[in-house]
Design a protein around this nucleic acid. Structure first.
Lengths: 164, 164
DNA sequence: TATTGTTATACTCTATAACTATA
DNA sequence: TATAGTTATAGAGTATAACAATA
């Protein structure tokens, strides 16, 4: 004989579906290349900001300084293309660096619209010292990697973002 | 008989130290882990934004959705710690997702101060579909890497940012 | 007293449109 | 007409201080 049909008893006094998370599982995100690359980049930036404080250089400012150092006469447009900066946002960076008297804008020898970017002697020294320091900081970011692993890591990252 | 001392002729018509850069050398920056990680992360985000447009989910929103999906009842504080988001900035994210009716805040069963975060059925479907899509997009980001290289890359990135 | 979630707010970063001078 | 540099401005992302409710 079939059991009589009866209303289900009211749920036991669980004010919510008892759900308490002890440890947060982020396994899915950690399987994603983009997520891991971003977390690693943020870790590196954190080390950079701390270690570069004496130079008062933000990451993008060191990038600008370094590219000018290795490419004297480079134009703003070339800098923007190389670093992925938009032209309006480079203007303020260059103004800051020019006020610090480490960068100078000179008229371009062949194109009257463009400016050739150069470092002052002080800028050359700053670029040298800052590049040396950031190279040291890299070692602490990559502290848990062997030299071979670091080389592999950088090579694989380049395969991700550099055009084939 | 010594040539008479005469003023040096005005410099030849070189208005500036002839400096024309053909190709920009970024070798120094490309030797830095942080620079490469950031460029790779930006490349991945670009692919994400394009491919995830139909879902109208920003990267951080998918992260939030995914963590809640895999950790029902997780608190805001736990989410912030897991994803590196500051609590004031999570509030707006959760408000947006709650207005979309994919996330619900429920009172925490044991801690009256906290909120347990849960997905609605629609949120569960969105999380499933979005995770599937982002997994596909990963393949295009890592198109130039072999499966083994991708595994190596992710493992090495974790060694950079995860505590030993 | 310490912690969770929240509000308000400020600062930085990034993006778009439009102007000028020159090519 | 197209491009280089610039201006102004808007939007997104990220940061700190302070408060109410609860532990």
């Amino acid at each position: 004989m079939p059991a009589a049909r009866m209303p289900r008893p009211a749920a036991a006094p669980k004010p919510t579906p008892e759900a308490i998370v002890e440890e947060v599982d982020t396994a899915f995100l950690e399987s994603l290349l983009g997520y891991n690359a971003r977390r690693a980049a943020l870790a590196a930036i954190s080390v950079f900001l701390e270690g570069m404080a004496p130079f008062a250089l933000k990451p993008v400012e060191l990038s600008v300084l370094s590219v000018i150092a290795h490419n004297p006469g480079v134009t703003s447009r070339q800098l923007c293309n190389a670093l992925g900066i938009l032209p309006p946002n480079l203007v303020g960076l260059l103004n800051t660096l020019e006020k610090r008297e480490v960068v100078v804008r000179k008229p371009h020898p062949r194109d009257g619209r463009a400016m050739g970017l150069h470092l002052t002697p002080a800028g050359q020294k700053l670029a040298r010292d800052a590049e040396k320091k950031v190279t040291e900081l890299e070692a602490s970011v990559a502290a848990r990697l062997t030299p071979a692993e670091l080389r592999t890591l950088i090579a694989l990252l380049k395969k991700v973002y550099l055009p084939a």
